[in-house]
Design a protein around this nucleic acid. Structure first.
Lengths: 233, 233
DNA sequence: AACGGCCCATTTGTATACAATTTGAAAAAC
DNA sequence: GTTTTTCAAATTGTATACAAATGGGCCGTT
């Protein structure tokens, strides 16, 4: 938690991302460059680089001439993200089954344990982050680096979605999904692993309250009836 | 081809990327910031933003304190990229079959026609770019935007790999693969579409000469025998 | 009092100045 | 003659200065 003398770009990235996961920065919050400069003690050059990277990861939205705000993914988009993850991770987990070595499994078990610790300690953002790291680590074991990089992006967006749509106080993930997944992978059981992963992702998506329609945004859609009434056909 | 008064960031991106596809910029070529500033008539601020984005798309490599060079993907990495594409596009094409409307098919046919025109005219980089756009458009029809964005990145890396590994003068892609794909998709024939896509990608990869070992790079590996001789066990 | 236009404060976008690092080569030491 | 040291030119990294744009409030008009 200590701030280095010269905060690096990636450290600032993590700090901002972490603040989002902690829900200290809520969607649509404006990120003024000058304020971030004062907070982190660097010039706008650095802050702008960080904001550009955050925007390419779809964590913040960069509106030309109007600054950066925390991204507010729509429910439709969150569903698409999970759909994409089901596709990618189906392939990843199958390959991980074939490539997984004993020490890989040990590392996965250690990550799952630390995730449990975070949940027990009530460290919500830590749990979200470790859960994401777990999936990224699976991709690393599968050994396809481009695929792992793509998943990293989807995981970042998923983390944002969880922070946004998980009802506060409610448990986020079925605790032992990851544990059962590790066992299946260590056994090299491809079909079982794929089934667990698929169910796991579907279950995660289901726990988000994506049903409640969003208030914001498209006023034309909200007042569609008004529009229809105003135009006597 | 005319240069705007104020070249936009994305225009400069496209120009550099196009020069790479045209093999006017070969791998490991250094991209000096000052030179690019003079060429495009903008300040280093803009150039550095473009280079950052190119590096995040893995088209150039950004070495800290040592500048940017055109990326030189290793054969292993190219194989991984194609493997990732097979996974992603298998899902994309299946979804595109369900979502494809008549005007979508018409657009695809138009893109395929323009690609043929480029091949006939000997416009190699144009053909590579349109071929990539075709696949990205399929993802757009499938209607999963995050997935489409991921594919866009893979397509960029594929284009770089093609420019690097296709033997000059040799035809790049089986001409009618895209046409047959359009027909199958327009018919809503999921299984056939998936088979064509899979074969298409495998065929593209096969046409690259990834067999010839790369000369450059890891001197430790190249001179492994020397190293062994120097260390008398 | 409501509407519209104007102006100024704030914020973002771009260019440039300055600091730090790398690199190559000349000079000094062995 | 070879190796090491040192130094200068070039290049990247960071901060800042300046230009352009946005947004909101003030004032005048109707």
């Amino acid at each position: 938690m200590t701030r280095p003398k010269k905060p690096s770009e990636s450290w600032i990235y993590d700090q901002i991302f972490g603040a989002i996961l902690d829900q200290k920065l809520l969607p649509d919050t404006k990120l003024t460059e000058k304020d971030l400069c004062e907070v982190f003690g660097v010039s706008r050059t650095i802050i702008r680089k960080v904001l550009l990277r955050l925007s390419l990861d779809k964590v913040v939205e960069l509106r030309p001439n109007r600054g950066a705000v925390i991204a507010a993914p729509k429910t439709d988009e969150v569903r698409e993200i999970f759909e994409a993850r089901r596709l990618l991770e189906d392939g990843i987990v199958a390959e991980a089954c074939r490539k997984c070595r004993p020490d890989d499994a040990a590392l996965l078990r250690d990550m799952a344990r630390r995730e449990h610790d975070c949940i027990d300690a009530g460290d919500n953002s830590g749990a979200i982050r470790l859960s994401g790291d777990f999936h990224v680590q699976l991709a690393a074991i599968a050994g396809n680096r481009p695929l792992g990089e793509l998943l990293r992006q989807l995981v970042a967006q998923t983390s944002l979605a969880i922070a946004r749509y998980v009802p506060p106080g409610r448990g986020m993930c079925a605790d032992d999904d990851h544990d059962r997944l590790i066992t299946a992978i260590a056994d090299g059981d491809v079909e079982n692993s794929r089934a667990i992963m698929r169910t796991h992702l579907l279950e995660c998506e289901r726990r988000l309250n994506l049903e409640t329609p969003e208030s914001s945004g498209d006023l034309h859609a909200v007042f569609a009836d008004v529009l229809r009434a105003r135009r006597p056909a």
